[in-house]
Design a protein around this nucleic acid. Structure first.
Length: 463
DNA sequence: TTAGGGTTAG
């Protein structure tokens, strides 16, 4: 589109695109040569309008008709532009062509090109070739280049290769790249297939290479281990940290504590919490939430409530997570009265209920067969545009039908379908099974409610 | 030296 437009604007005398000939003419009028800056202005204008064709003309012109050394940043600007416009081949071609603009390419262009190629799995294959060719172009590869590669390898989940590059760098006399090591640790959490054992090997190898992790590195490592369910390993890393004179902070402790809670090591939980206090760290709402969760897992709900009271006295306000934790415990203990009190408390404190609050409460009410409350909660939830689980609909409708609340169940069903929610087979089955003659609803109800409902549902499930 | 990084949920 842009090309046909610019074609009309071509100057008939010199066959240059309009903007280029305008630039050349205005400089000619003052009897001076166009400067690289002027070309850069032109190029920026053309990229803003994605005028690819005219860019080609301008580049050809600079290459063939100008004498100045083109500043590298100008060409880098274009390489980046091509990269982000998904014209990777153009970016690569321009990179190889840099010397023809009387410009000496540096590692900056190389790093830029590699980072662009690393954005895409297919383009990544071009990287080795580029690295080889860049040597012929006399570009000196730097630590920064390796870092770009390491980042890319971490992103495509090849920590092993990333670590190999770290090793190559050391063999090549670059020394240990601390930033690269940090990069590797911080990418651990995104490595889905990596086991905690493998991660610990990577960690140990880097330590052997002389890597001195900082708080952030330790925290990332601990986070990974906890995520993998290795709370004990996380605790070991915390101890390593202390031995190495790096002070764990509240975030660090909070993550380890959550790992300990997950392992249900309640003795250790108390020990570590106390240790943290002794070290002078002040727990915040995150820490308290983890601790409260630990207490709830032990069914110590009253103790948990005491903690909530005391944490508020100490200045950290309970939040929706605190209450969801308590509600979850109370509901699974089947103590709906306590749950009702807690909900009231939340509303009084102005703590907004979130998706999880509703899900926890609904599960609690449904399990106890409190269908009326479940229904009004469901309505409230839908008004706030939170999505209940399909099984929740099914449970409610199933129980309504069992209690003979057939008409109510149909009304609810209608509401749900109108909101494009698709209840599961169990809900429909319950409705249909209850539509026997003993329930004595009219044929008109059947025709006006059930049939259209089923028709709509089948459409929903098809799409 | 600073921030960043952290909490619940079948």
């Amino acid at each position: 589109m842009g090309s046909s437009q610019s074609f009309n604007l071509y100057n008939k005398n010199n066959n240059y695109p309009f903007l280029l000939s305008t630039l050349l003419n205005s400089f000619k009028a003052y009897c001076i040569d166009p400067t690289p800056k002027a070309y850069f202005f032109l190029i920026k204008n053309l990229t803003q309008n994605s005028n690819f064709q005219d860019i080609v003309h301008v580049l050809n012109h600079i290459e063939l008709n100008e004498k100045f050394e083109t500043p590298e940043f100008m060409l880098m600007y274009l390489i980046r532009f091509y990269g982000f416009a998904d014209r990777v081949q153009d970016a690569v071609d321009l990179f190889y062509r840099i010397p023809r603009f009387r410009c000496t390419p540096t590692v900056c262009s190389l790093n830029l090109l590699i980072s662009l190629l690393c954005r895409n799995r297919d383009c990544l294959k071009m990287v080795p070739q580029i690295l080889l060719k860049s040597r012929l172009m006399n570009i000196r590869v730097e630590e920064s280049t390796f870092r770009v590669l390491i980042k890319a390898l971490c992103r495509i989940k090849r920590v092993d290769y990333a670590l190999r590059i770290v090793n190559f760098m050391i063999e090549d006399g670059y020394g240990l790249d601390v930033k690269a090591c940090s990069l590797i640790v911080s990418s651990l959490c995104e490595q889905i297939d990596l086991s905690s054992v493998e991660a610990l090997v990577v960690w140990r190898d880097m330590r052997k290479l002389g890597f001195c992790p900082d708080v952030m590195d330790y925290t990332n490592m601990i986070k990974f281990l906890v995520k993998q369910g290795s709370g004990k390993d996380a605790l070991n890393i915390l101890n390593q940290m202390k031995e190495n004179g790096v002070k764990p902070d509240i975030v660090c402790y909070t993550i380890v504590l959550s790992g300990i809670v997950a392992e249900r090591d309640h003795v250790k939980l108390d020990e570590l919490f106390d240790e943290m206090i002794v070290f002078g760290l002040v727990p915040d709402v995150y820490t308290y939430n983890v601790y409260i969760n630990g207490l709830c897992k032990q069914n110590k709900i009253d103790e948990a409530r005491e903690i909530v009271a005391s944490m508020e006295e100490l200045g950290s306000k309970a939040n929706v997570v605190t209450y969801n934790t308590l509600l979850g415990a109370v509901c699974s203990a089947g103590d709906l009265n306590k749950a009702r009190v807690l909900m009231k408390e939340m509303r009084l404190k102005g703590i907004g209920l979130n998706l999880h609050t509703y899900r926890i409460m609904l599960d609690g009410f449904i399990r106890k067969g409190e269908i009326n409350e479940a229904c009004s909660l469901l309505e409230e939830m839908l008004e706030k545009c939170f999505h209940p689980r399909t099984s929740t609909f099914d449970d409610i409708i199933f129980q309504m039908c069992q209690k003979g609340l057939f008409t109510e169940a149909l009304v609810l069903m209608k509401k749900l379908v109108a909101k494009s929610f698709a209840p599961g087979a169990r809900a429909w089955e319950a409705l249909l099974l209850n539509s026997g003659p003993e329930l004595q609803y009219s044929e008109a109800t059947y025709d006006s409610l059930i049939i259209p409902e089923i028709t709509q549902l089948s459409k929903l499930t098809e799409s």
